[in-house]
C-alpha cells in the first residue's frame, strides 16, 4: 500500500553540521499492518514519520502511496489519508476552541467553505463519539480544549483523527508525555480504535515491552537504518532481553537510550 524507496535524509548538507539521518531506507507497509518501531534516541524514527507524512521532503528516494509517487505532495494533501498523532498533546487540537468546534474542523478533511455545519444532528453524532472514549467529555462539549488534561486532550486527538478514517495512522510516542495512568488509558483507546476500524498503523515507542506486545510487525532503527524487521512467530516469541541481545549481535554495540532499559 505504502512504499518507501531508498529514502535518504541529510540535514545541513554542505555545512560542518551535515547530518545523515536516514540511510537508504526501504520499507513496504501493507494494508492492515500494525508496525511498532523502536530505536535509540536520534535513530531517525521521527524523521521517518516526517518523510512519510510529507512534513519533510527526503534528500533522495521516493514515497509511493497506492502506486502513486507522492514524494513532492505537501503535508496538508497527504493528511487526507494519513493521520498523525504527536508526542505533544497540544499539537493535535486547538486549545482556544471548544471540543465540538475542534471535532467539526476535524470532521471532513480538506478545504473548508462557508457552510455552517454544526447543527443538532452533528452535535448528537459528536456526543456519541465522545461517549465512546468513556472519559466523560460528552458533557463538556462547549468547554475550550485548553481546559482539558494532557491525557484527555490526547484521547480527543485520537478520536478526531479516527473521524476521517485515514488509510495510515502514525503514532509518535503519543503516550510518552502522559502520566502512567493516562498513558495506559490512551494506549487502551488506541488499541480499541485500531481493532474497531482496522487501521494500518505505525507506532514509535520507547517501551520495548509495548513494541513486542502490540502489532504484527516490529522494526528496530539505528543510525538512520532499519536494522531489524520481524513479524509473525518471530516477533511474538521476542522478549525485551532477546531484543536487546539481537541489537547487540547486529550492531556489535549496546542498545543505548536513556528511556528504554527499565520500561
Amino acid at each position: 500500500m505504502i512504499k518507501l524507496e531508498k529514502i535518504n535524509m541529510i540535514f545541513g548538507e554542505g555545512t560542518p553540521d551535515r547530518n545523515h539521518v536516514l540511510r537508504d531506507v526501504d520499507l513496504q507497509i501493507n494494508k492492515g499492518d500494525f508496525i511498532t518501531i523502536i530505536g535509540s534516541n536520534g535513530a531517525g524514527k521521527t524523521t521517518l514519520f516526517n518523510v512519510v507524512s510529507g512534513n519533510k521532503r527526503p534528500s533522495s528516494g521516493k514515497v509511493i502511496v497506492n502506486n502513486k509517487d507522492v514524494t513532492n505532495h505537501p503535508e496538508y494533501k497527504r493528511a487526507k489519508y494519513i493521520g498523525r498523532i504527536f508526542q505533544d498533546p497540544l499539537l493535535g487540537t486547538a486549545g482556544n476552541m471548544s471540543i465540538s468546534d475542534n471535532m467539526l474542523v476535524a470532521g471532513n478533511k480538506g478545504f473548508k467553505g462557508l457552510k455552517i455545519s454544526l447543527n443538532r444532528k452533528k452535535r448528537e453524532y459528536f456526543r456519541e463519539q465522545l461517549k465512546y472514549l468513556d472519559i466523560e467529555l460528552e458533557n463538556r462539549m462547549s468547554d475550550n480544549v485548553g481546559m482539558l488534561s494532557g491525557g484527555q486532550r490526547q484521547a480527543l486527538t485520537l478520536l478526531m483523527m479516527s473521524l476521517s478514517r485515514p488509510e495510515l495512522v502514525l503514532l509518535d510516542e503519543h503516550t510518552a508525555a502522559l502520566d502512567p495512568r493516562n498513558a495506559s488509558k490512551v494506549m487502551e483507546l488506541t488499541d480499541k480504535f485500531i481493532d474497531e476500524y482496522g487501521f494500518t498503523v505505525m507506532m514509535i515507542t520507547h517501551n520495548m515491552q509495548h513494541a513486542i506486545d502490540n502489532g504484527n510487525r516490529l522494526l528496530m532503527m539505528d543510525e538512520g537504518r532499519i536494522i531489524l524487521d520481524i513479524s509473525g512467530e518471530e516477533k511474538n516469541s521476542m522478549t525485551v532481553e532477546s531484543l536487546i541481545k539481537k541489537f547487540h549481535d547486529i550492531r556489535n554495540k549496546d542498545f543505548a537510550t536513556d528511556k528504554t532499559l527499565l520500561s
Partner: peptide, 17 residues
C-alpha cells in the same frame, strides 16, 4: 480560529494554511 492557535492542527486536517 484554529489556525491562529495551532497551525499544525489544520495541516493535519488537510487544510492548506
Amino acid at each position: 480560529g484554529a489556525m491562529g492557535d495551532n497551525e499544525q492542527m489544520i495541516i493535519s486536517q488537510g487544510v492548506n494554511p
